[in-house]
Nucleic acid binder design. Structure first.
Lengths: 197, 197
DNA sequence: GTCTATAAGCAGATAGAC
DNA sequence: GTCTATCTGCTTATAGAC
């Protein structure tokens, strides 16, 4: 194996190639969802995407870069969702927390198996600057919000709430739960309990 | 790769061989802790254990069986700990929940990196009957306890509390947290909030 | 019972034709 | 730009010596 390269942006994409890149990423996502990480080989991804390995390597310098990009997109979508929620606060701690968690649950329930696989995958990858930044952004948004509400140790609280949410939602996904409202309210109960007790 | 075999008990151990088995498992644990799953090859484990691959395969029918046994032991220890806690209830929901979580936190903080690695690994392995039973035992103990306290939907609550705890503790481990008391009290706050709100 | 050496298979990655 | 064919290295697993 050569040096691990995480950043696919070194190979700036042609506009027309975006469809190919998307097809590759979508193929990888579907393999992760249906067969797990072990089945995610470059050949399998290329097959499923309807291209050859050679083409895959034209767009991604390695398997790791492909996975990193997948995480980057997922995380980006989540952060945008949370940021949008943060933009319209109800200035009531409990309602705002509920809104955050609702957004996170909605995001995870869109493609539960994929979200879970990426959650597990992320800590094992050498994250590039952008992905780290996205995670930091998420924590920062929550942290800033908590601070505004006068929560003590807002950074630690943000980490705890994110972890708690991730844990509960991933577990729910594993048991096949799909009831957004129920899950969201249970997570909110734990989160608000954490904050107000 | 041949058929995946998870159950090492097909090869009943000689009494004197237990030391070798322990050495192999401990070597695997240490590699998981220090270098992660990718570094855990059968050769690396054998090396670190001071035996040859041949010997390893005499005790474990495959890499998967080795990992399964590692999980079985860890989970067994946790379940025993939780069961012991359940045996002396304070008959006060909050205090009992705190005791459970204290036990779980203590367990995870014993070898945080290992516990985390196994938590991530477990869902990817084809679990044998005994490991599944251990997990079910854990959920059952918590569930029965919650039912005794009149909690509604005790099975779902047990799953949620276990997931919430796992999520928070694993995340804390990743950031290098070692303060048992602080972590334990934060998790308890979330758990009690979940139950009483 | 434990070792060494090696077989067998596969994944990641590349070269070169078209 | 995309494909086919191939190489290289590594991992699992086994065979056979001691």
């Amino acid at each position: 194996m050569s040096k691990i390269v995480v950043d696919p942006r070194k190979r700036p994409r042609q506009r027309r190639s975006e469809a190919t890149v998307d097809a590759i990423l979508e193929a990888a996502a579907r393999i992760l969802e249906s067969d797990g990480l072990d089945a995610l080989t470059t050949n399998a991804v290329a097959d499923r995407a309807g291209v050859s390995v050679g083409s895959l390597y034209q767009y991604f310098p390695g398997k790791t870069a492909l996975l990193a990009e997948l995480i980057r997109r997922e995380r980006g979508a989540l952060v945008r969702r949370i940021a949008a929620t943060a933009a319209k606060p109800a200035s009531n701690l409990e309602a705002d927390v509920a809104a955050f968690i609702d957004a996170a649950v909605a995001h995870q329930l869109t493609r539960p198996a994929l979200a879970r696989a990426l959650d597990f995958l992320e800590p094992t990858l050498p994250l590039d600057a952008e992905s780290s930044t996205l995670n930091a952004n998420l924590a920062d948004i929550v942290s800033a919000f908590l601070m505004r509400h006068g929560v003590t140790a807002p950074e630690q609280a943000a980490r705890d709430l994110i972890a708690l949410t991730k844990g509960m939602v991933d577990a729910a996904g594993m048991t096949g739960e799909t009831d957004h409202a129920s899950l969201s309210s249970r997570v909110t109960r734990a989160a608000v309990g954490y904050l107000l007790r």
